[in-house]
Every structure is written in C-alpha cells, then in structure tokens.
Simulated assay, not measured.
Amino acid sequence: MTLTPTGRLFGTDRGTDLVITREFRAPVEDVWASLTEPDRTARWYGRWDGHAAPGRSVRLQMAFEDGQPWSELRIDACEPPRRLALSSQDEAGSWRWEVQLTPQGERTELRFVQHLDTVEGLGEIGPGWEYYLDRLLAAHHGTTMPSFDDYYPAMKTYFDQLSLSPR
C-alpha cells in the first residue's frame, strides 16, 4: 500500500517543529481519552503507569517497538481536553512533543508537534510518527491497524528532503 506522508516543518523562535495532523470523527473529549487513558493508549502506542500530573513523570512501555522498551515521560503541560505536552530523554537524545486538539463540530483535529533540536534523523523520526498517528486513528475508529512496513522506508526520502514550510 502506498501512503502519502503529511508531515511539515516550521521554523520557530526556538528551532524547528515537525507538525503532523489527523482528523477524527469524534468529539474532542473522546479523542482526549484516547491520548490519556492507559487502557486506550495501550491499543495504539503503549501502556503507561504512574501518577499523571503536570510536572510529574510516568513510565511508558512502547508496545510496538523492538523489545517493548520502557521509558520515562515527563508531563510538561496538561490542559484537558485541548493540549498535552511531554518530554523524555533516551540514548537517541531529548524528545519534546505535544498534541493539540481542536473541536470542529462533531469532528476533532489533532495537531501533533515535535519540537526538534536538529532535523538530523528526520527520515527515521517522521515515518514513525505517521505510523503511530495512523495507529491512533485505527484504534479510535476500530479499523485495521497499519503495518510499519508501509511507512518505513517508503516515507524516508520524503522526510529527509523536507524543508521549512511558510507559516
């Protein structure tokens, strides 16, 4: 199957943002639950445990990565049901991302933003986020889960060649 990548890069005062959007046929509160309730995140990304609150950290097991690794996620901001900002640190570096939800009638637009320190490795990062956001859509709507093989390496060149979009 051939999928079209949707990621875009935007320059900011602090660096570069990778932005990927998706649209859900659901109210914003339902999409928020898919992002924040442990039993629902387990369906598309991984399960987490801990006391979730701004300034606190939770443990997340990435269920669909080799070895199902655990990582610690810091909750930098939580503004239900509109915005969730997270950060983590691992052997690949620091990760800062957020999800912004905008209600549009009976639909909700999800705007995923990864705040990048560098665009190095974007050919690996971008396809992964496209894959996980499509997993989120599939889990939310009860449809067939996508295969990572449809995303990588098929989308690598797109993300490697991505340049800044005008605001």
Rank of each mutant, 00 (worst) to 15 (best):
I75P: 01
I125K: 03
L116H: 01
P54R: 12
W32A: 01
W97Q: 10
W48I: 14
L73I: 02
V58Y: 06
L101W: 00
R43I: 01
P38S: 11
S88P: 03
R59A: 12
P127I: 14
Y132G: 11
D76S: 02
L110P: 00
C78L: 07
S88Q: 05
W48Y: 15
L133C: 14
E65M: 06
L86N: 07
P69G: 07
S88A: 07
D90H: 03
Q100S: 15
D76C: 00
P146F: 08
E98W: 15
L110E: 00
M145I: 02
T144M: 09
Y132V: 11
T102L: 05
H115W: 00
S87H: 02
T41F: 04
A42N: 13
A33R: 11
P103K: 07
H115P: 01
Q89D: 06
G123I: 10
T118A: 13
L116T: 00
A139C: 06
L73F: 01
A53L: 15
R83K: 12
L122I: 07
A52R: 14
G67N: 09
Y45I: 15
A52L: 13
L35D: 10
W95C: 06
H140M: 11
L101V: 03
D66Y: 04
E106S: 14
D39H: 10
F64M: 01
D49V: 15
R74P: 00
A63K: 10
D134V: 09
D117G: 15
R135E: 06
T108W: 04
S94C: 10
F64D: 02
L73A: 00
Q68G: 10
Y132M: 10
R135K: 09
L86P: 06
D30G: 13
G142S: 07
T144L: 11
R135S: 06
S34T: 08
P38C: 07
P146R: 11
E109F: 05
L137F: 06
A42L: 14
H141I: 12
L101R: 00
